[in-house]
Design a protein around this nucleic acid. Structure first.
Lengths: 368, 368
DNA sequence: TTGTACGCGTTATCAT
DNA sequence: ATGATAACGCGTACAA
């Protein structure tokens, strides 16, 4: 086996073609405008012969601009992250950018580490889908002076574009659907809220919904709501706590149609696991609608009703936003919110509920 | 808003500390061995003051070695890919490498494109989880002269390490389990096999299992098996074809306990969708065991029996293998196969079946 | 239109 | 132990 032949350099091509390095460089950067067809083909042949392609490293060093975008993601295991990653990666590729991936594994301590690692490769900008607790990160980020797009989670003190689901509307869709289906006792289950902006917004929207529903009630069947944060961890302890909470909720609301609204896909899955231990069934014992559509939503129990996020669009938009900035767009930070889409299934088909048509919207809200 | 301050360079630090660039460089690369404590602290201060960190680009240009690894993945949407991505990314980070991600979106045409894009950034090696149809890729890859690790799918003609599930054993585990549970009619459902090595191996293993079972049968209840390739596409047409096939299989095997063995998680989900249209239930009408464990396996129907792949280990091993090569390990291509683990659930609990204990092994097989 | 020469930020070699 | 300098591969003034 022969040793690896070193990569051909611009000098090799120049020699092979009998021209200068500058000419070869021009062949790649200004081919049409300032090159003789004769010479161009000579270079072309040499390039093909040596299988040469310019080193992005060297190019970036000279010209600036690595065409690299850093993507920091809180947890690659989260289906939401992957789905939006997919959209972002696609948009980047189309614009000639490549993605450098850094996964936090839900460890917020490593936010700074991630930014630094990415920064040392001169990424031109960042797409951040992170935890948001760490104040140092914001300082670090602003200091970097590179454009940033935040996805799903705002970071306090960070001066950046923001792309996300319209959380308030999504919660209204979900809760409104449940009420329309006849449920009157609502339980909002969320992961520990901490300082995660999307969790804060969703919980706030839920509380507001309940307040409004109570205020405007004329049916004499007022809507009641409460909130449950799932305990930390991932194991048996958490599951049994959740199971107890579900049992408790059932008991507490006996006689009134009750339903659960789930924070996201991770929570929904935990709820499903807990329900498997309760002597009950989604849609009969308890209603359920969860934020985040997944592969399995249609097939678990009677089908889980969801609010589907336009994950692909979110990722695409995040990338697009960033690339616009890289091209020089100088606007104050934008906020782009996309609507989710309610997908009603068996888990929210209350007994004797009135049927309501689905409203399949997904338009972009205004930017500000 | 002030313009972005340009990144501090080694020269800036040198000036600030009143030393030469060489000294600053030494501070980062050979600090302990050849630097006066006095000078070292001066440099340290300057570095902190300017928030300097060396440019990996420039370093790579001079020294070679970008500490970058290219990861080409056939489809980020596939849970298997993501799971192994997670393991790989973690191992890379721990070894000081970063991952550049390229997603093929199941478009094998772009294999070469991916390699080239990654190569232009001077990635030091590749982890490939790709389609394997494209012969050009192998040539391209070998030409690059950089180490490569193949995950899950061999590439004909490609000279590289290979990390994968032990497909033959996995199929034996799955099929053996089904037979032990009393099923006698087996249907192996797979995505279009084409030239994908893992699909070929699994199908071959299935056929072999059936042959052996027939040969050694002494019960008078011989095992029969057949194979079904799912049609291409993703839509309604595919689903109804699959549904018909399932119905047909049920009819054909009426009276004998029948079960389906699924190629991977994607196929399993399609089977689940199809079964939802058939007047039947997994584990009662038909048995089912699928390769790939997923989040939802325990909660769909009576629970889907699976062969769980050690995805995290696979990813980690792939990265580790590659990094060993980068550090100079010169061995002939290795083949590392990991065992899966059977997770029996309701979908394979045949009526009156004998209970068998789970064998929770996951040891590495020999390398060759 | 093409070639020459310099600099991007870093590390390695050679002096000191 | 530290400093000056060349070189890595490339793009771009500037000169021809």
């Amino acid at each position: 086996m022969t040793a690896a032949p070193p990569r051909a350099t611009i000098a090799d091509v120049a020699r092979e073609a009998g021209v200068s390095k500058a000419t070869v460089s021009r062949f790649f950067n200004h081919r049409e405008t300032l090159l003789t067809p004769d010479i161009a083909t000579r270079v072309e042949k040499a390039v093909a012969a040596l299988d040469y392609s310019p080193s992005r490293m060297a190019r970036a060093l000279k010209r600036g601009g690595t065409r690299l975008i850093g993507l920091v993601v809180a947890d690659v295991t989260n289906p939401y992250s992957v789905a939006m990653l997919r959209g972002a990666e696609k948009a980047c590729q189309e614009a000639g950018y490549l993605l450098m991936l850094f996964n936090l594994g839900n460890d917020s301590e490593r936010e700074c580490e991630a930014m630094d690692a990415l920064s040392s490769y001169q990424v031109e900008g960042y797409i951040l889908n992170t935890l948001g607790r760490d104040a140092r990160t914001a300082a670090r980020a602003n200091q970097l002076g590179k454009p940033i797009v935040l996805v799903d989670r705002k970071h306090r003190g960070m001066h950046a574009d923001f792309v996300s689901l319209d959380n308030a509307t999504a919660i209204q869709q979900a809760a409104g659907h449940l009420v329309a289906q006849g449920y009157r006792e609502l339980l909002y289950v969320t992961e520990p809220i901490r300082a995660v902006s999307s969790r804060i917004e969703r919980e706030a929207a839920f509380r507001e919904f309940v307040r409004d529903a109570a205020r405007h009630d004329k049916t004499g069947q007022p809507v009641a709501g409460s909130v449950l944060e799932t305990p930390d961890g991932d194991g048996e302890a958490q599951l049994s706590t959740l199971t107890d909470a579900l049992r408790d909720f059932c008991a507490r609301t006996a006689g009134r149609p009750a339903a659960v609204l789930s924070n996201n896909a991770v929570t929904t899955l935990r709820l499903v696991a807990a329900m498997a231990r309760v002597e009950g069934r989604w849609g009969e014992t308890l209603g359920l609608v969860g934020i985040d559509e997944t592969d399995w939503s249609p097939y678990v129990g009677p089908g889980i009703s969801t609010i589907a996020q336009p994950t692909d669009d979110l990722g695409r938009l995040a990338a697009t936003c960033l690339i616009e900035r890289l091209r020089g767009l100088a606007l104050p930070p934008r906020q782009i919110l996309l609507h989710g889409q309610l997908i009603p299934r068996g888990s929210s088909r209350a007994v004797g509920a009135t049927k309501k048509p689905v409203k399949p919207i997904n338009k972009r809200s205004g930017t500000r």
